[in-house]
Amino acid sequence: MHGLVNRAIQCFVTDLHGGEAWHDVARSAGLDSPGFDAMLSHDPALTRRVLDAVGQVLSRPEAEVLEDIGTYLVSHPNVGALRRLLRFGGENFVDFLHSLDDLRDRARLAVSDLDLPELELHDHAADRFSLRCLTGPPYRTDAPMVGFGHVMMGVLRAMADDYGALVLLDHSGSGAGCEMIEIRLIERAFSTGRRFELGQRVG
């Protein structure tokens, strides 16, 4: 598994629950070193062990933990880079939803060995969408990322907030390697959202 994924889990635990909690996770998962390096790869089984340990230490179901990780990745000040990168996807929340089809390619352009699950957005009506996350076999056999749909739930929730849109999300379960998220757009401009200029960081 790419180090960025493991590092994201570590930062989530450390930033929101403290270094002590991460220490417990690392011990419970039997990690050799106290932290992950974002740019090195690790055995996928290790990520599984870490997620199990996070669930135990925080006493929370995995789906909730994963969704919180998604929200954290977009909304926590320590990881502001990702929010901006996602905002490049579109001018408004619907544009952003459509850009998710390219998320995997976009991620790979940035970090060539980061292999995220394929995402497919389907339009059912102007305000109804579904997002298919191809996270397990037969779509991904080498490095399944089952549960990534829950992470995307958190990402979508936080990005809707960022764009000022009001949405209802439902993870309608997984089957045959695919997780499905139902998206209902209640209000496109529910709040003003956060400003996004192309040039905030560059230069």
Partner: peptide, 29 residues
């Protein structure tokens, strides 16, 4: 970008500038 508050709607949808900026920012991260 420093002098003007540009957003992606300032560029033609087929213009690669926004993609290039995405890439520059992603690579620097």
């Amino acid at each position: 970008l420093k002098d003007y508050a540009l957003s992606s709607s300032d560029f033609a949808p087929t213009d690669m500038t926004v993609e290039m900026l995405y890439l520059a920012e992603a690579k620097s991260a």
